[in-house]
Design a protein around this nucleic acid. Structure first.
Lengths: 195, 195
DNA sequence: AATGTAAGTAAGTATTCACTCACAAAATAA
DNA sequence: TTATTTTGTGAGTGAATACTTACTTACATT
């Protein structure tokens, strides 16, 4: 289990990366953010790589719980996608620093173990959407003229690009509102009307 | 104008960033890739930031020419999108290292000027797609139930995610084929059938 | 042949990096 | 109280960083 100090280090690491980029993520800057000596950091993590690893594991565990809880509900496929959009946009609005971590896979290129972990996150998210959409097609809820993998690309891709635009614009629009609007558009396009 | 040596430095910079990430993009590694001394680099660029700046300018000029040439043709909107998809996927297939640069906006966080430049690239690409889609809606070629900005998010977002997946999978599938498939799916969904 | 210049280098500079170590204070256990 | 463990620190380490300096070489122009 993670100690309180370790959790704090993870949170501040995300903040430092968000503010200064991966090049600004140094032990010195991290220690300054926590108001601790550099040496003290090493009482809680044995290396910088281990900190980055913990940052990713933290994200994996949070999003796993969330995705599983949605998959288990007995709502329809479109309703599930709507819930994912709502939850994710709410989370990012509350904690914008997370965006830097989640959409900047290149950050973790330094270590093979880290970039593999990121690859798995991306693949798992893809699989979750794909399963939901496949179910929707079987239930005649979602358009069947287009393969589920292509629909997944559009749904995930559009959401990711929206979040990226939000960040690049310095969070100048309401992400939750945009997210709602995007979902309605997606629903309009992919809903099966021939049934 | 850029000298031959400067062009070489730009190309090798892209290769180094692609291979080692932004953290591995050091003057030492760059010099090694060109087989030149570190000091010699500074005969051609006065700083590392200036090299990164040249890398971005190089990309801007290439893609500007390309996007403008497509916008000027008198093909339909969907045909234009198809051409963009074809051209981009062909370019990435020929020069995979470029993907690292174009989809890794975080690389350029170190300097404000660089990150602004990246923001402008993203916005311009968005505007190009948006204009094409708006035209298509006016001509009753593209579905009007969904706003053009939302369609733009889906088209650009899906394409970007496809390229990202390609890279994360170590280029394990044929990008040009996937791109073709994605376009057909998009066409199926957004084509106006009520006219 | 003499001169100017572009393009190169070896060997530095100062600074920053991740990380270590000897030791001290504080919390916990006996 | 005393002993032990946990958590902290200041002052280092060697390696790496971007960049500079003093100097050399290759070559074109006069």
């Amino acid at each position: 289990m993670l100690s309180e100090r370790q959790k704090q280090i993870i949170i501040e690491s995300i903040n430092v990366i968000d503010a200064l980029g991966i090049q600004g993520f140094t032990i010195k800057n991290l220690a300054k953010a926590i108001n601790l000596s550099e040496a003290a950091i090493y009482r809680h993590f044995k290396s910088k790589t281990e900190i980055l690893c913990a940052v990713l594991d933290n994200f994996i565990s949070i999003s796993s719980d969330f995705l599983n809880s949605i998959r288990e509900t007995d709502s329809g496929s479109l309703e599930k996608i709507k819930q994912i959009f709502e939850k994710l946009s709410a989370n990012f609005s509350d904690n914008p620093a997370y965006v830097s971590i989640i959409f900047a896979e290149e950050i973790f290129k330094s270590e093979k173990m880290l970039s593999e972990k990121v690859g798995k996150i991306l693949k798992r998210n893809n699989d979750v959407f794909n399963l939901i959409i496949e179910d929707g097609q079987k239930n005649n809820e979602i358009e069947k003229k287009v393969e589920s993998q292509e629909l997944t690309l559009m749904v995930m891709g559009a959401f990711r690009l929206m979040v990226k635009n939000w960040k690049m614009s310095d969070f100048s629009f309401d992400l939750k509102e945009s997210s709602k609007k995007l979902f309605i558009s997606i629903e309009t396009l992919v809903k099966n009307n021939n049934f």
